[in-house]
Design a protein around this nucleic acid. Structure first.
Length: 357
DNA sequence: AAATCGGGGCC
DNA sequence: GGCCCAGATTT
């Protein structure tokens, strides 16, 4: 392995300066109350691609409702998705519950300390495995996320594109070399806190950095140009007509999305893909796809929703039907009160206020 | 290796 | 509008 980048750094001094800073400045976060592996696990799953401030209220509610692996293992999946509602990347919730059930069945409820067993659990990838092993079990294993790549791209002046999947292995190698063997838990968490509070993506506060004298990018004055990351391509746009369909009893039609793909297992108001279906074909399309005879009214609002790879433009319309039962197994008629128990994606949550008017 | 999979907050 | 976020899984 090419270790020329390590020749300019005093590893033990780096560790010492970093850990001293962390002891003084570590953030007070709910999942740091103790090192219980289940709490660490839940927090790490929630924190994937998600900001700390967003996660905190979700984490607190989740731990209150599912304090141990046993409560989560026995829970109804729809209830778990309801707890996850608004947090995004819903496969995280389904995979977490699948994995927790595996831990209860195969490991008597004890989260494995063995890297192989832990990494084989659903939704536990290289990062989460390293985070749990280091934070909960104090094993000197790398946990390479965006923070770690940003910090070490600067400290070691690494110009490899961090958007490439192969690049992560390079960082894992360097973290293995540099991680504190005495306190790997604090080391990994310290790098994350440093990346979140000082070694930030834009305008890093190098003057407050505990390891500035160890940082190659700071010495060279190039911290603003690291890390290197290839641009993401633009999202594809899709148009839909969403229908708030009410029947004579005042109930509304909702639809469960498929078990895989975007927003899997969540509920929504029926949508017509408007890119594919022209206006004159709306009625026959609804009859064909849902078995519903619907009268459609004028638009009441429009909603734009940006996903990572798609942009939805949804024209929302009230509609009525004479049906009282549904033929399609994906559909249900629900009252406004009942509807609140179902997990909805955010763009459809924004339609709910228009039901009451 | 690239695409999929949410949503919010920042500039 | 683009970018980033305590990434994993599928293609």
């Amino acid at each position: 392995m090419n270790d020329k980048r390590l020749e300019h750094i005093n590893i033990s001094a780096f560790q010492e300066d970093l850990l001293r800073w962390y002891e003084e400045n570590k953030r007070d976060l709910p999942w740091r109350e103790n090192n219980d592996a289940y709490r660490v696990w839940v927090s790490e799953i929630m924190l994937q691609q998600t900001k700390v401030d967003t996660v905190i209220p979700y984490f607190n509610r989740f731990m209150e409702k599912y304090p141990t692996v046993y409560e989560l293992a026995e829970a109804d999946q729809q209830d778990v998705l309801k707890q996850w509602e608004g947090l995004g990347y819903y496969s995280r919730a389904r995979n977490l519950q699948t994995a927790v059930r595996e831990v209860v069945e195969a490991y008597d409820g004890k989260i494995p300390e063995d890297p192989k067993q832990l990494g084989d659990l659903k939704g536990v990838g290289p990062y989460t495995k390293g985070a749990i092993l280091s934070i909960a079990y104090n094993q000197p294993i790398p946990a390479v996320d965006g923070n770690v790549m940003r910090v070490f791209s600067r400290v070691l002046h690494i110009e490899e594109d961090i958007a490439q999947s192969s690049t992560k292995k390079l960082f894992e190698h360097y973290v293995e070399e540099m991680i504190s063997k005495e306190d790997p838990s604090s080391f990994n968490q310290a790098i994350m806190d440093l990346g979140a509070t000082i070694c930030t993506p834009k305008q890093p506060m190098c003057m407050f950095c505990p390891v500035m004298e160890h940082c190659q990018a700071y010495v060279e004055g190039i911290q603003d140009r690291l890390p290197v990351k290839k641009k993401a391509k633009k999202q594809q746009k899709k148009k839909y007509i969403a229908l708030l369909i009410q029947n004579k009893e005042g109930k509304y039609v909702i639809e469960k999305r498929p078990d895989s793909g975007l927003l899997a297992g969540l509920w929504q108001f029926p949508m017509i893909p408007a890119d594919d279906i022209v206006k004159k074909d709306w009625q026959p399309w609804l009859q064909e796809n849902y078995g519903l005879d619907v009268e459609i009214n004028e638009s009441c609002t429009s909603i734009k929703h940006v996903f990572s790879h798609i942009i939805w433009n949804v024209d929302v319309r009230k509609a009525s039907t004479n049906e009282e039962t549904v033929q399609d197994s994906r559909l249900e008629f629900v009252s406004l009160e009942e509807l609140k128990k179902y997990p909805f994606p955010v763009p459809h949550q924004k339609m709910i206020p228009f039901l009451e008017e």
